[in-house]
């Protein structure tokens, strides 16, 4: 009897119409949720449009990427961000050279070796470190490097502060990638009698390499925009300085902050031009990261 009932095709009365209340609530939720997304687009579009409209003229000026502000008067439409661009890239690269190896090794420890209280403590501390505000990291390096060791302010001190900010990001992303490496690969390697360290270096790391590179690029992109450490740990300079261990060195954020107090039209153009350059630089690093991950994701099959 039941079978015959089921064999009959369902007719409209079987599916009750939704009550108006439920329908209304459903529509309301859809509208609100879509609205939230649109609200988020407002500041994004507004901000990017402002930066592009006010800054593009600086970028197309012939000296922008090839000259510093050496000998340029505050209200003079001349010079460029060559020195600041160098400063940003140099500080970020020095930071990456220190942070990436430590970060990868720490991630290997957490994934391959870590257990017990020390591993739990390390995981906890990585979380805490990722929440340390950049100004606190800068103050710490100031207290250690300048006030305790008695060393001068320098771009290298900035890099050290940036290491503290970059490390947890590298560890997190690297850890995730290492965990994605199929366990069979490790087992196959062990079965061949290969020592654990060699398995990690020759099998696990190469498999996860693209993900690790991607994570490091993203971490680098984040560090490029940090302003607090450069305010505390290095002085502003109008001209280029190649030496990261000595003297003042300008980076893009410091350049923007310094020109921010320059009320002339030239100063305004410079801050928006530098802001646009900085955003493009960060986006470039993000883009490279995405491309790398797109082309060589871990084969989970």
């Amino acid at each position: 009897m039941t079978t015959t009932e089921l064999e009959r095709p369902a007719r409209p009365p079987v599916f009750h119409h939704l009550s108006t209340g439920r329908k209304a609530r459903n529509h309301l939720a859809t509208v609100l949720v879509s609205l939230a997304f649109l609200i988020a687009l407002v500041p994004l579009v507004w901000l990017l449009a402002t930066v592009v409209i006010k800054g593009w003229r600086a970028l197309v000026s012939p000296d922008w990427f090839t000259h510093s502000l050496k000998g340029v008067l505050p209200d003079q439409f001349a010079g460029g961000i060559y020195h600041a661009l160098y400063g940003s890239l140099a500080q970020a690269l020095v930071c990456a050279v220190i942070a990436v190896p430590i970060g990868i090794l720490a991630a290997i420890y957490l994934v391959e070796y870590g257990r017990g209280w020390l591993a739990r403590l390390t995981t906890f501390m990585v979380d805490i470190l990722s929440g340390v505000p950049s100004i606190v990291a800068a103050l710490f390096i100031f207290a250690l490097w300048i006030s305790t060791f008695g060393l001068e302010q320098s771009a290298f001190a900035v890099s050290l502060a940036l290491v503290l900010l970059m490390l947890p990001v590298v560890v997190r992303s690297c850890e995730e990638m290492l965990r994605l490496v199929p366990q069979e690969l490790r087992e196959a390697s062990y079965a061949l009698g290969i020592p654990k360290w060699k398995t990690i270096v020759r099998v696990v790391l190469p498999t996860a390499l693209s993900g690790i590179v991607t994570g490091s690029m993203l971490a680098l992109a984040r560090v490029l925009g940090e302003t607090a450490p450069v305010l505390v740990l290095v002085g502003y300079s109008q001209s280029i300085n190649f030496n990261i261990f000595d003297g003042n060195m300008t980076s893009l954020p410091l350049f923007i902050y310094n020109q921010f107090t320059n009320p002339t039209a030239a100063g305004q153009l410079r801050i928006w031009g530098a802001a646009l350059t900085l955003i493009l630089l960060v986006m470039l690093f993000n883009l490279i990261a995405t491309v790398i991950s797109r082309f060589s994701a871990i084969k989970t099959k």
Binding site: L47, L48, P253, L278, V282, M283
Partner: peptide, 13 residues
């Protein structure tokens, strides 16, 4: 993309 905007630029804006 919002996350790619450095805080100094947010400050300016």
């Amino acid at each position: 993309l919002l996350a790619a905007v450095p805080s100094v630029v947010f400050g300016l804006w």
